[in-house]
């Protein structure tokens, strides 16, 4: 797995398509794709939205299964958690969950890239 993270509007998705030479048709949008798509596509962006949808429907992401069935997937996610603690309980939970899931993915990932102003830095290469 490869994780690409960074703030919103930083060009993470473009960076990932270019860096990993993936065609747009082989990617899914975490905000509205079928939940099973994650096991098939080469790249999934808006991964934080995917986590939000999982949380809303009370599901857990099976990272073990993901690693086995789609070991080369590139996950592109907003880096959340750099703000004041949200007032709304679901927002707090969502922010926390995204952090924990991404920590776990970063530990399993062979590479983690962080994109600032469109420029990516490899912060982990296993």
């Amino acid at each position: 797995m490869i994780l690409v993270t960074g703030g919103c509007f930083q060009g993470k998705k473009d960076y990932a398509f270019e860096t990993f030479q993936i065609a747009r048709k082989d990617a899914a949008d975490g905000a509205d794709c079928a939940m099973e798509a994650i096991f098939e596509v080469k790249l999934l962006y808006h991964f934080h939205e995917y986590i939000r949808r999982m949380l809303q429907t009370g599901q857990e992401i099976d990272l073990e299964k993901l690693q086995q069935e789609n070991p080369d997937i590139v996950l592109v996610t907003n880096e959340l958690g750099y703000g004041v603690v949200p007032v709304d309980q679901f927002d707090r939970e969502y922010r926390e969950k995204t952090g924990r899931v991404c920590c776990e993915i970063a530990k399993r990932a062979k590479e983690v890239h962080r994109v600032v102003c469109g420029i990516g830095t490899v912060i982990k290469r296993a």
């Binding site: 880096e79 926390e96 920590c103």
Partner: peptide
């Protein structure tokens, strides 16, 4: 330092 849920405590 780090964001919420970033794993900073564990580190």
């Amino acid at each position: 330092t780090g964001g919420s849920g970033s794993g900073k405590s564990e580190y």
